[in-house]
Design a protein around this nucleic acid. Structure first.
Length: 626
RNA sequence: GGGGUCGUAGUUCAGUUGGUUAGAACGCUGCCCUGUCACGGCAGAGGCCGCGGGUUCGAGUCCCGUCGACCCCGCCA
């Protein structure tokens, strides 16, 4: 093939077939760069090949499909091309056959500057010829194979589940498929095979996996497509660690396809710790953690800064950025979340001025946060005075003495095993606000701190498990508790008694695997007992009728000998994206959709004929008047 | 649903304060060229300035609307 010939192959007869990547016509001497999926080889057409071959070579253009018959020749030392693996050799053509011509292209796979993504997506088949996309698709294949091999070796069965099904309990909107046989009724495409895999456990297939397409009708992002691929698995009789070891095993196998050796087991961190140290539930461990530096300041100092001394004062350290000018800092503020002002959260970014005002404090801050003098230091803290608005649910209490806002008192009892008090709403806002500032800064100064650069070692990839997620989240608009993961997630045994008294304190046996600040996958130990399931539904405020209507079949199944079970699902697209070093999922999916869920190549979705609609019993209403 | 960036030749881009003939590079067409690899040289073709409206003597440029691509928030494990 085109990318395989080396100096050792000199002087052999070869036939190369491929696309003309580039033609260089020097008159009586013509070079063709021949490309196939393995790479590029230069073919030479000299006068010796005869007039007919020469004429054909003259007629050739970019992306013609040709066959070159000839022999391999070592290049003269001064004509070797060091930029390509086949550069020491070339194929001297005796014969050239044009297998197919090619119209002038909207853009060329060999272009160094990429065309607009709209054009690339419309002519996806041309864009896909680019070696970079070829590499990504190959990588995807290799990763999938490595995972299959690993799971197969561990005794997992790959089992398919239906695409035409009914809604599963994830919270996203469904893609619906109308039924001709039952007009007015619909299948739903699975958001995940969640219930089917749990049923498989009930059926005794105690190790299941599937590399499977999932569908969610939600707004898209660079790392979200409406259809995406999950590595889905479920195990009977597991502890969370059972699942962790399996995932670590196949990720290790997947990463070894790019020559990276991962250290296992991955570190673990509770959700609570993640919020406190990183202000987010998917921490990027490549960057330093935040530190509460309240102790570095005297209470009066904080008060003089209008900072609430009862709440965390968080130092964010961005290494090797150095000091910033006033102008730079002003520009940075635009990057901070607008919410901070509404929530009355202060960002103190003028360290020099702080140092002047509080000469003893800043060295202590540096000590507590580990910030060197080369590093950029920002402090995020809760403001005491609300300027005008600040109306965000709980106003900071007026008056001098400021307690934590509601709920923080109850947490001090120490009922959380980590020994930390439970986060109040206000504390959460501060941690999360600081976490966002931290990420914004890290992104902005990536080329200065250089922590995102790849060295090609396992250090480039910081993986961890985040555990002990809260079981429920409070839904402000609906004024009720929602399942944070899904309603079949098992609570911690120690927290069972709080299901009714204090749902917000119940921790779930749920876990995420996180890589460099990206959530790769999410799973849990499931509920296998019907009585506990009923309690959860009750805590969620779901009536028995509603339970029956949505999950009746499953609740029934639970009662027929369900083993303890649990599992996880990981986003294959995201894994490959990170391994490929790509910025977008579209770079690792052969036929992706746009941010508005349109396939520009086939032009989908489209309206359908009245006849088709009628047969399905569907009438379209609310078409935009045009 | 909200915010931002962008839309000019096949492609990537430039286009001054609103001014008369809208430019460049690559690609394309023709000619020349035996060591190129971003080949080189000469000549040429190629434009609904996304679309619709407005302001103006005059709009690629200003205003309003609309469509599309991308990024972010909301939403989504």
């Amino acid at each position: 093939m085109c990318g395989e010939l080396r100096a050792s192959d000199a002087d052999s007869k070869v036939v190369l077939m491929g696309w003309v990547n580039k033609r260089r016509d020097l008159g009586n001497l013509i070079f063709l760069d021949l490309r196939d999926r393995s790479g590029i080889t230069q073919a030479v057409i000299t006068a010796d090949a005869g007039a007919e071959v020469h004429d054909r070579a003259t007629a050739v253009r970019s992306e013609f499909v040709v066959a070159v018959i000839g022999y391999t020749k070592l290049r003269e030392p001064n004509t070797v091309n060091k930029n390509i693996p086949t550069g020491e050799i070339e194929v001297v053509a005796d014969e050239l056959r044009i297998l197919n011509d090619c119209k002038p292209l909207p853009f060329s796979p060999s272009d160094t500057v990429l065309a607009n993504e709209e054009v690339r997506l419309k002519y996806r088949y041309i864009d896909l010829r680019r070696p970079e996309l070829h590499r990504n698709i190959e990588l995807r294949h290799q990763v999938a194979i490595a995972i299959r091999d690993h799971l197969n070796a561990q005794g997992f069965y790959e089992i398919e589940t239906p695409f035409m099904t009914r809604s599963t309990p994830e919270g996203a909107r469904d893609y619906l498929v109308p039924s001709r046989v039952y007009p007015g009724e619909f299948y739903a495409l699975p958001q995940s095979p969640q219930l089917f895999k749990q049923i498989l456990m009930i059926s005794g297939f105690d190790k299941y996996f599937q590399i499977v397409r999932c569908f969610r009708d939600e707004d898209l992002r660079a790392d979200r497509q409406p259809e995406f691929t999950q590595i889905d698995l479920e195990i009977s009789f597991p502890r969370p660690e059972t699942v962790f070891r399996v995932v670590e095993g196949f990720l290790k196998a997947a990463f070894s396809t790019i020559g990276v050796e991962l250290q296992t087991p991955f570190p673990q961190m509770s959700y609570d710790q993640a919020i406190r140290l990183y202000g987010i539930d998917k921490p990027d461990l490549r960057l330093p953690a935040m530190a509460d530096v309240r102790a570095a300041f005297a209470r009066e100092n904080l008060e003089s800064l209008h900072v609430d001394p009862e709440l965390p004062v968080l130092a964010i350290v961005i290494p090797r950025v150095g000091d910033l000018s006033r102008k730079e800092r002003d520009e940075l503020r635009l990057l901070y979340p607008a919410r901070l002002a509404q929530q009355n959260i202060k960002v103190l970014d003028d360290t020099r001025r702080l140092e002047k005002s509080f000469p003893q404090s800043i060295p202590k801050v540096r000590e507590l946060s580990g910030a060197g003098t080369e590093d950029y230091l920002v402090i995020v803290a809760a403001g005491t005075v609300s300027f005008g608005d600040g109306n965000e649910g709980q106003k900071p209490p007026t008056g001098g003495e400021v307690g934590g806002s509601y709920r923080s008192g109850s947490g001090a009892a120490g009922n959380v095993p980590s020994g930390l008090s439970r986060l109040s709403m206000r504390e959460r806002q501060i941690f999360e606000g600081a976490g966002q500032v931290r990420l914004a800064l890290a992104q902005k100064f990536a080329d200065r701190h250089r922590l995102f650069e790849r060295k090609g070692t396992g250090d480039d990839y910081k993986l961890l498990w985040v555990t002990d997620f809260p079981m429920f989240e409070w839904d402000e608009t609906e004024q009720r508790w929602n399942a944070a993961h899904h309603p079949f997630t098992s609570p911690h045994e120690q927290d069972m008694d709080k299901l009714e008294s204090d749902p917000g304190a119940v921790r779930a046996l749920a876990y995420d695997v996180v890589l460099n600040g990206t959530e790769l996958g999410s799973g849990s130990i499931r509920i296998h007992r019907q009585d506990i399931q009923a309690k959860i539904f009750k805590a969620l405020g779901m009536s028995p009728e509603e339970q029956q209507a949505r999950f009746g079949f499953f609740l029934e199944a639970l009662q027929y000998g369900t083993p303890p079970h649990g599992g996880i699902a990981l986003g294959l697209d995201r894994i490959v994206m990170i391994l490929a070093g790509a910025e977008s999922l579209r770079e690792v999916i052969p036929f992706p959709k746009t941010a508005k869920a349109v396939d520009l190549m086939v032009d989908a979705p489209t309206p359908v004929s009245e006849r088709q609609l009628k047969e399905l019993g569907i009438a379209v209403v609310g078409k935009k008047d045009l």
